[in-house]
């Protein structure tokens, strides 16, 4: 199942996405949470903390600068650029993994 969380700036998308992701994971679903915002902060709402969220963003910027090559498959990308959030959610900041434009292309 693929879910997209949309709405005006500041409406509560990130809050909603985080609670939904972890609730589904708690009930035995394997969940990937993709932060597609150009100002990523889903990690904080998921509970991975500031530092880890920053680390993921830094990785993204390294990619922006072409310092890292693209991984071949989605699961590889998740391994390399994702992090484990509580309840087993796997989080990735994807804005620029595949495309340097902001947002999920």
């Amino acid at each position: 199942m693929k879910l997209a969380v949309v709405g005006k700036g500041g409406s509560g998308k990130t809050t909603t996405a985080a609670v939904v992701a972890r609730t589904l994971a708690r009930h035995g679903t394997s969940v990937v949470a993709l932060d597609c915002d150009s100002n990523p902060n889903l990690g904080i709402s998921l509970g991975v903390g500031d530092d880890e969220t920053e680390r993921l963003i830094a990785m993204r910027q390294a990619l922006d600068e072409g310092e890292q090559e693209h991984a071949p498959g989605w699961d590889d990308l998740l391994d390399r650029f994702g992090t484990d959030a509580p309840d087993g959610v796997r989080l990735a900041v994807v804005t620029a993994i595949q495309n340097p434009e902001p947002g999920c292309p």
């Binding site: 693929k2 879910l3 394997s30 969940v31 990937v32 993709l34 498959g73 989605w74």
Partner: peptide, 14 residues
């Protein structure tokens, strides 16, 4: 996206 996960949730841009 083609993960071996059940569910993908995307927090999109505003």
């Amino acid at each position: 996206v083609n993960f071996t996960h059940d569910t993908v949730i995307a927090d999109l841009e505003a």
